[in-house]
Design a protein around this nucleic acid. Structure first.
Lengths: 366, 366
DNA sequence: ATGAAAGCGCTAACAT
DNA sequence: ATGTTAGCGCTTTCAT
């Protein structure tokens, strides 16, 4: 690998002149000098060393990305959108870390980012405590957090980008209500995060509007390996529900993976979706179109949010402890597939139509 | 952020002494000196700057990871295993890039890694040409490639870690044969990669052994957005197959996502799995346990391979153009679920048992 | 318009 | 046992 020195020698100029062309200050030199330097750069296949550059400038085109587990298709999707946008629009690369929702691992990741000179980080976490983010900001980082609201009044300087979880859950619940369901349930995992409680609130608001019953069913805690097994919690819950005498007829799942697991559990428990119970997911993962029956779900604007996070974290001055900002992405879409049917009580006359199962992928504006 | 200078001043020693404790050369000093330095480090919350360290040593604890798309659950899974192992066992962090199987993007990623001082990279690619990897090795990188065999006789110095694709496909096909299927097909996407052709060879070897018919069905090219939509190719293929008069009764899919899409397409075409046609996947993704019917699939030893890749890329001397090594992970497992049934011709007497669908998750040793 | 030189924070000879 | 010092490759005043 050739260095700036080699180029300077080759072009018979000083290193500062080379540095100037590298940094676009071409107006400070004669045209032929510029040409000579450029020729030398090409001839030597010179690539400036980011390391040295950053040691000097304190800036590096790297974004840290903290996710519970990249094996979770939802986070994989977000991560891909983030990486692609950061790379294509800003030339930034992404340093990804799996934290398994563990505070110690999150802290360690922040430490390492700092040591690597990374000053911009996007956090997808569910830890209630935002304390370590604030510490990071104090240490000179720009951080944006996904799927949680800003703590009111907090001056952390952490930006927040989040889907409108309340609205998403409300939408899902209204869809069930529109199909005649009144025995409603919300299926989630143990542990309350901001996004989960917002979803529950949206669910209950819709249920209360029509005076329907709205239970919250907690499938239990996540196994240590994070969310790639959230579907197993759903499966266990589905099995449990199938065994209940007076079970709900319409269920809103906290996310698509949960919904998929739930459907599997319900099936194993001898129930049919949507004949016996209807299920709605949230996320709008591509996977939801593959299930049998196809999962009706509320699609979140992932690419838009990913883009917003990248813009936010790159535009922000690292370490500037401004007031915490917050952007909520609200128009959510309901993708109608086959996992929702009429409530069993009124199902009789619709039963004749069963069997002619086709892909109805209507998009309804929120 | 305090520097090594601050620590030295605080402990009233020289920077080299601090550097020595940082690098474990504690035997070169008196116990009380060591204690003072450690106290100073703690007091100042000092964290060595990786940047500066690496500028000096030329070494940085970072691994580059190149994947077609992290949104593909299979790659997300591998990436998580790689990251976790690299981090926990070696303190390495991972810089991930999505390349969409595009040579230009792959090249650009290698360039950036070089500029960032990253000297170790794990490549999950399917590009036929390995030329740019060899270039990377020549430029001083240690690279290990997943899911492809070493080019015989090549002195590239690229390590290869791969599942035994031939054996995986053979196993899947034998399972179909054991259920009486003789009209067999292999479902894949357009474009021949090493791993795909190995799978096809395994499929055909099994088919030929019993004189069965073994067609290769190509669902068409992947949409530009890479493999998160490979299932759509499967869906289209499934639909096409459903319309064929003399269709196969047993299908081996190139991977789980393809199988899931295939089942959806078959279903949309009015066919039932496994009554009308049986399907076997390959990968063993957790998702395959969620489908309806549950997907019978050949499980690949992902965690083991991920670990091997990390060990390989970390232990190898960067830039050392040794002979290309190759490790094939062979004992593959067949996970039996519900997507395989008896071939239709002999299905009559088994038909009575249908309906009592339960989760049979037997593991058969390969 | 171009060059000389001082570091950025750290490591590792090479002193002492 | 501990300290001094010369860089790693680059950017950026400050000179010329």
């Amino acid at each position: 690998m050739s260095t700036i020195q080699d180029v300077a020698r080759h072009a018979a100029v000083s290193v500062s002149t080379v540095s100037n062309v590298l940094n676009g200050r071409t107006d400070r030199m004669r045209g032929d000098t510029l040409a000579r330097v450029q020729a030398a750069i090409a001839a030597l296949q010179f690539r400036p060393n980011n390391l040295a550059r950053r040691l000097k400038t304190g800036h590096t085109p790297l974004i840290g990305l903290l996710v519970p587990s990249i094996a979770n298709p939802m986070y994989g999707y977000i991560a891909r959108e983030i990486e692609t946008h950061a790379q294509e629009r800003h030339g930034y690369r992404v340093l990804t870390g799996n934290t398994y929702r563990d505070k110690v691992k999150e802290d360690a990741f922040f430490q390492d980012l700092l040591a690597h000179g990374v000053r911009r980080v996007i956090v997808i976490s569910s830890l209630a405590d935002e304390g370590h983010f604030e510490m990071a900001v104090r240490r000179g980082m720009a951080v944006v957090s996904y799927d949680r609201r800003a703590t009111p009044g907090s001056k952390t300087g952490v930006d927040h980008i989040t889907p409108d979880n309340f609205e998403a859950a409300r939408l899902a619940t209204e869809h069930l209500i529109a199909h005649g369901h009144t025995r409603l349930a919300f299926a989630t995992v143990a542990g309350m995060t901001m996004s989960r409680s917002a979803k529950i609130a949206g669910f209950q608001a819709a249920a209360e509007r029509v005076g329907a019953q709205g239970r919250v069913l907690d499938g239990g805690p996540l196994h240590e390996y994070g969310d790639s097994v959230i579907s197993e919690v759903g499966r266990a819950l589905g099995l449990r529900i199938a065994g209940q005498a007076r079970r709900p007829t319409g269920i809103v799942a906290v996310n698509d993976l949960m919904a998929l697991g739930l459907m599997a559990g319900l099936r194993e428990g001898g129930l049919q979706v949507p004949r016996d119970v209807s299920v709605v997911g949230m996320d709008g993962l591509h996977l939801s179109s593959l299930s049998n029956p196809g999962l009706t779900t509320v699609q979140l604007p992932i690419p838009e949010m990913a883009r917003a996070m990248v813009e936010s974290v790159i535009s922000r001055e690292p370490g500037a402890g401004a007031a915490a900002s917050e952007r909520v992405f609200t128009p959510t879409l309901l993708i109608e597939r086959e996992s929702v049917g009429p409530a069993p009580a009124t199902a009789a006359k619709a039963a004749a139509g069963r069997g002619a199962r086709q892909t109805k992928q209507t998009r309804i504006r929120a």
